[in-house]
């Protein structure tokens, strides 16, 4: 599994396809948080929101790197399709963790804040919630499911809208509204962790759906 993640990360790094989502994320974070002096709870909420589309983009880019014959070779080498899919999820998580680290540090450099440990934990949990949800959307809209990238893009945008606006169904929406109203970070930790768990469940479901569809199509 480590070999697979290493391989996929190398291919992604060499392809430079990570650059666009990375720059989008850094740009969004810079715009949303520069000279911001408010509570970090709300700041990290907006950073998490910015990570959502970037994680979708990163995941689809990662899956789209390999075309079918090439993926076949990797699948035969790894021994199973599921292992390759899990490695894809692992690689996307790894790259989203890098973005999360940037999203934690940048607001502190761009604005005037005095971070408490609770703020940082909350910032990580909030960003990972969005990252997992974004990866779930990215997997379902990836080349594994859709041959035609146009349809995939439309579906991805619709799903993003649904996730951002769907009251009561999406962990992202629930978490973001909750964070805007939260008095401080430590109070918001427990509900955010619950949403993180929900987002993990969503990612697992999306991976299962993707696996089922890929197997059927193969």
């Amino acid at each position: 599994m480590i070999a697979l993640v290493r391989y996929m990360s190398t291919v992604l790094l060499l392809s430079q396809r990570y650059l666009a989502p990375l720059l989008l994320f850094l740009g969004l974070v810079a715009v949303l948080t520069s000279s911001d002096t408010g509570p970090l709870t709300a700041t990290y909420a907006s950073v998490a929101g910015a990570l959502l589309p970037c994680s979708v983009w990163l995941t689809t880019a990662l899956v789209g790197l390999e075309d079918q014959p090439h993926r076949s070779i990797v699948v035969v080498s790894a021994g199973s399709r599921l292992r390759v899919l899990l490695a894809t999820v692992g690689t996307a998580t790894l790259w989203c963790l890098l973005l999360t680290a940037a999203g934690l540090v940048l607001p502190l450099m761009l604005g005037a804040h005095s971070p408490a440990p609770a703020d940082l934990v909350l910032g990580t949990a909030a960003q990972l919630t969005c990252a997992f949800t974004g990866m779930a959307v990215g997997l379902v809209c990836s080349r594994l499911v859709f041959r035609r990238q146009g349809y995939a893009l439309v579906l991805a945008l619709l799903l993003l809208l649904a996730v951002l606006l769907g009251d009561g169904v999406s962990p992202v929406r629930t978490m973001l509204t909750h964070l805007q109203d939260a008095p401080d970070s430590s109070a918001a930790l427990v509900p955010t962790s619950l949403m993180l768990a929900a987002a993990t469940g969503l990612l697992a479901t999306a991976a299962a759906v993707t696996q089922a569809i890929t197997r059927r199509k193969a």
Binding site: A3, R6, Y7, L65, P69, H70
Partner: peptide
Amino acid sequence: IGYVPDRFTAPDRISSLSYLTHLGRI
């Protein structure tokens, strides 16, 4: 199992030796 597809389209920029090393590790 060793599998050679009819069309081999390589991932963009990786070198052949590095590609083989990665696949061997996998």
